[in-house]
Design a protein around this nucleic acid. Structure first.
Lengths: 164, 164
DNA sequence: TCAGTATATTACTTATACGTATTATTGTCA
DNA sequence: TGACAATAATACGTATAAGTAATATACTGA
């Protein structure tokens, strides 16, 4: 490695870190300002996975009709290790957003299901995240935005937890 | 907000989170594999700030000639709140990388100085971060890369902790 | 069938980061 | 000068995330 040619990759690492901290900080404050004090940023990834199961309509009637998801699959979906999930699901359960239910077919498995509360905050939470992200990207044109997403997926693939 | 026009901003939030977790995970493992078990990812941002003070040469002789930095400025540099800094500096001090010294002119201030150990690991750590980032971006062309950096700075400016 | 392997989750420890409150200084201005 | 605001760092509690080890269950092949 020569000093003139490093492209400051080490600074890029910090830049990504700072950017993520900044966005997350704004989301945290937006949730608080909206009065959603029991919703933490880390819940959002999990909730999005679960909400997807319920399709587009916000029908509370569907609550009983959906099987829920395994903790390990939720973790994969949110990019988290299994060991990170236990505490997260604990907190979400304590906040009344989800509940653990037994899996009939596999007694090792918890099925994580939304509660009525977890389903009903859906549009509020998505609106908040939407507003934060829209504001963050308000000065980024469509082409740069699309490119940005593509690069994120490329990096995600390279650093995916699948490989060691 | 209408459903067809959200551009999946909520998913972007999760995508950025996952990407950051992925990169950080790879850096953590790379540090471990290199035998730098006492270096944690969070140290890197702080070390980069301090190393910058010492110019390009890695001269240990400069150790006594530099004033060190205030904790609050290091925090600004790394994008961290003051309250996040105390513990981080504690751990870095325990790892023998930095030390707190009194400020002659202002008794409220700690000056954080590199130790010999903190200075000597410089090229190893930068090399590791460089390798991880280069691999992460290996399939991203120059133009996309430059655009990516620009977008990060734009977002960082929008979400900067300066504003409330 | 049963021994060994794989899978799902949890328990425990540590690191990371923030918010709030507190303490100790420094700076300001009436 | 002396009250009051501003600044720097810390203490404490909580959330977030990982690694390692343990436990329980399921699967698989001889």
């Amino acid at each position: 490695m020569n000093n003139e040619n490093t492209n400051q990759y080490e600074n890029l690492y910090i830049l990504i870190n700072q950017t993520w901290l900044g966005i997350n900080s704004v989301v945290r404050k937006a949730l608080k300002n909206a009065g959603l004090t029991h919703i933490n940023p880390a819940y959002i990834g999990i909730l999005l996975c679960l909400w997807r199961e319920y399709g587009l309509e916000e029908s509370l009637a569907k609550l009983g009709t959906v099987d829920g998801m395994k903790i390990i699959d939720l973790g994969r979906c949110a990019g988290l290790e299994p060991s990170s999930m236990t505490g997260l699901i604990d907190r979400m359960e304590r906040a009344g957003l989800v509940k653990r239910e037994d899996d009939i077919h596999d007694r090792r498995v918890c099925r994580i299901c939304l509660t009525q509360k977890g389903l009903s905050i859906r549009s509020d939470v998505i609106k908040i995240v939407y507003n934060v992200m829209q504001n963050s990207f308000s000065e980024v044109d469509k082409k740069s935005y699309d490119n940005f997403i593509r690069v994120l997926y490329t990096i995600l693939d390279k650093t995916s937890k699948k490989r060691e």
